[in-house]
Nucleic acid binder design. Structure first.
Lengths: 246, 246
DNA sequence: CTGTTTATAGTCACAGTGACTATTAAAGGA
DNA sequence: TCCTTTAATAGTCACTGTGACTATAAACAG
């Protein structure tokens, strides 16, 4: 805004708003899309699962707060949190979304490779953080189920016209692993040779790691390794098949 | 969020946040993309142009506030404001974006057909609202220039894979008018027959108004009239030509 | 060695698109 | 009235990208 406040507008005149952030952090693990959740320690919704997040401090931007809360509440490695690509999803501002007071929350989405289970370490605040598969996600606190659903729609769509799928992969990966990311997120089956052709002919999507190869699970021909390339968008997009899911 | 606030968290403990909305409302007029701006009456930035917007009230959602502020601050017809398709752009939360206090703003984007200049009517609050072409937009208050730039990128992209272009047109329009919307927003020139084929073969994009035709500007063959169809997405998308602008 | 598994190479037909030409229906001027 | 201009509409053709599919290569298990 900042339209034209009444002259002499008093910031303390109304019940104040609190501003928070919520994070939907996804990973692909064992053929299923997982989301990072924490178990709440306090009321309301004590004992329930929720998206990680928390209050924005007076001198923070929402993105800074998101990164801080993620580091505090989950055991994710510092380096991971610092390098994370955070994307704003949208802001949730229904008046009664938090029973305590007026809370407006800025939601973010992030993708990470398959990491070890976050160890809730030292600081206590890190209650209990776990990766849970989306299929069997429990009821979530507040409106977090809606946020999670919106986030899922967003990432499914983003895979179509961006190179974000590589964010789910380790630094070096095979095309089979990248294929598995698409198949998992879209819950579909793609044709292997066609997928390969599309990825390799899109400039900057991936770049080959010279001479490297890896045995994938012990079976089959060793696969060449690739790194994420400099491209961020897919032109033309890689459209997901329509029709029934899988 | 709504992570785990400290037990006994006091909403009044910090300097409170204010939450506002800002709107980037676009129209196409005379071959140029225009945005709806208001002239500020109060400090800070008194006399400067700004996006319409204002404070979210204690019992409002951001979207409700956006609609109310738009009605209050601009002379847009009630019906237009009520039916308007508002889309969240993103939330701007840099700590110093407003010199008075901590203000977090939720930005929205909207598209309207070419309307008469909004008449600042009765209520006084409607300072001065005008359509200004994007090319010669003046300096804007706060970080509104950045918001406007983000909004422009968003709508340029949205025309590719949604049917939103019809929102720039009156209820009944010719394909030539729809073409002009694309050419104006993308600042490019499209092939007329190819555009026509694409629009007509996309199911639900537009539907013909039976028997209707209109002389477009007096010259040339009369054009058939169409209405916006039920579709919202374009599959496959209508990609804008790459390379140099126009 | 044989069968299984996964990676990789290649073929073919078709849909969608860009570039282009042709025709139709109106207005305006000589 | 005829001719030019303008814009809408119809249609053609080649090429690109994709879906479906077949074939070969390189690993392991028995």
């Amino acid at each position: 805004m900042s339209g034209a406040p009444e002259p002499g507008y008093d910031p303390y005149a109304f019940e104040p708003f609190a501003v928070t952030v919520d994070l939907a952090v996804f990973t692909v693990r064992g053929g299923a899309l997982h989301v990072l959740l924490i178990r709440r320690g306090q009321e309301p919704f004590a004992g329930a699962w929720a998206l990680p997040g928390g209050f924005v401090l007076p001198r923070e931007s929402a993105e800074t707060a998101a990164r801080r809360e993620l580091a505090e509440e989950t055991g994710l490695p510092q380096q991971v949190v610092a390098d994370l690509h955070l994307e704003q999803l949208r802001t949730y501002s229904e008046p009664d979304r938090d029973p305590r007071m007026r809370v407006v929350s800025v939601a973010f989405t992030a993708l990470v490779p398959d990491l070890p289970e976050p160890a809730a370490e030292g600081g206590g605040d890190a209650a209990q953080a776990r990766w849970l598969p989306l299929g069997q996600a429990p009821d979530l606190a507040f409106d977090h189920a809606a946020i999670l659903a919106d986030a899922r729609v967003r990432i499914r769509s983003k895979l179509e016209y961006t190179c974000l799928a590589t964010a789910f992969c380790p630094p070096e990966f095979t095309l089979g692993e990248l294929l598995a990311v698409y198949e998992t997120v879209w819950d579909t089956v793609l044709d292997r040779p066609n997928f390969r052709r599309k990825v390799l002919t899109t400039p900057g999507f991936v770049e080959a790691v010279p001479g490297a190869a890896r045995l994938t699970g012990g079976r089959g021909k060793p696969a060449a390794l690739y790194r994420a390339g400099p491209a961020t968008a897919l032109h033309p997009p890689l459209l997901r098949p329509e029709g029934p899911t899988r």
